[in-house]
Write a protein that binds this DNA or RNA. Structure first.
Lengths: 209, 209
DNA sequence: TAAATAATGTGAAAAAATACACAATAAATA
DNA sequence: TATTTATTGTGTATTTTTTCACATTATTTA
């Protein structure tokens, strides 16, 4: 089992690139096509595929449909993945409404909050009291949760999530969560990303000067 | 000039950790404290600092205030960084309202869209027509932009941004942007992040079985 | 003041990730 | 059918990143 995060991220990118290529009418692709579309080298593509036992046809490349299926299989996307969101503030609300991944086997099925003003069963995706979290997660067998609460609450909420059975947390709060060994955490930190960008923009400025 | 992205990201994390430690009353820290708070090893912390010429006091650790200042300096955060957003849909709107980085020297000063229904000068952060983008960016000397438009528009909009003088783009559209050499691009892709999480959760499941 | 202690700073070793290079081979062409 | 061509698949080399290990040195203690 390959446990290299960057490699898995590239697989996702290959899949997205393949969808676009398919939309353009591609039936087969070469490693070089995928490399261009995903912004890597062709040997990187082939090496990645080799790691996962994905094979093509020498001289013939890869069949787009087979490749998409195979990658979706590896990523666990050939079955629907249910996701919940805790914290329905600015970011949480935006994610609740986000339609981008409907097509890809990921579905946000509920939001949770402690503020009654935010509760609603009327919306396409209901917003429920955090007190109902455990029961909901267990009934629907949800394994993945998005954490979008203010940073002071983040650690506490992550413990609630883990104890309810959530195994993967996508954390938007700007702190480094520490979780049990059997809970996987990914962080998205806007400020960190912007700082990174600012650094490299400045660096380029200096390099040119 | 250090051009290692992961290293810069760790610097940001050290800074965030330092702010929290400072709030707890820390005046000096050891590399081990920072390592724990940021989720890395202490030798990693010291090596990173060494790369940037950050020095502490043998046996005495690092002074929190000095360290924060020094890291902010390296990240270019001791002067205000103005940021604009293009695309004021779900995600863009949420980011416009996001208060998380006010304290950190990053300020979102305007949003842009093509949909007149979204224009507004009344909001704290105005939403303006995309046609005004170039002039605004040049007048305010903005170098960093967030791209939050639908994927079909993303490439076109990124070219508008670059031609107006934007040098760093934080891209939320699920495609791999290709830009001029002097424009730095960072990608945040929710679906990719969730797929990653799903993979590792499944992988752990299998490892346990 | 001298000795003991505990931290940094960094060269060197190890590990991980990436790129290279080319034999193997399927498709295209003559 | 034989030859040429273009692409995969992968062992090896290279580069990058991380960890190790310890000499150095400030602080504390005796």
């Amino acid at each position: 089992m390959i446990m290299n995060r960057k490699c898995i991220i590239r697989l996702s990118r290959y899949k997205n690139a393949l969808k676009r290529l398919k939309a353009l009418g591609f039936v087969k692709v070469f490693s070089g096509n995928l490399a261009d579309a995903a912004g890597v080298t062709s040997s990187q593509v082939r090496k990645d595929f080799s790691l996962f036992g994905i094979t093509g046809n020498r001289r013939g490349g890869y069949k787009v449909d087979e490749l998409i299926f195979r990658i979706r299989e590896i990523l666990g996307k050939n079955e629907l993945q249910k996701v919940v969101i805790v914290g329905v503030g600015n970011i949480g609300k935006a994610l609740l409404r986000y339609k981008g991944f409907e097509s890809g086997g990921i579905k946000i099925i509920a939001g949770f909050d402690i503020d009654p003003a935010r509760f609603s069963q009327q919306l396409e995706v209901p917003v429920l009291p955090l007190d109902d979290f455990r029961q909901f997660v267990q009934e629907h067998n949800v394994k993945i949760g998005i954490l979008a609460v203010p940073d002071v609450a983040a650690h506490h909420v992550s413990e609630i999530m883990a104890s309810a059975g959530i195994k993967g947390i996508l954390n938007f709060a700007p702190i480094q969560l520490r979780a049990a060994d059997d809970v996987v955490i990914s962080n998205i930190n806007l400020e960190v990303e912007l700082e990174n960008l600012i650094y490299f923009v400045n660096a380029q400025d200096k390099a040119e000067a």
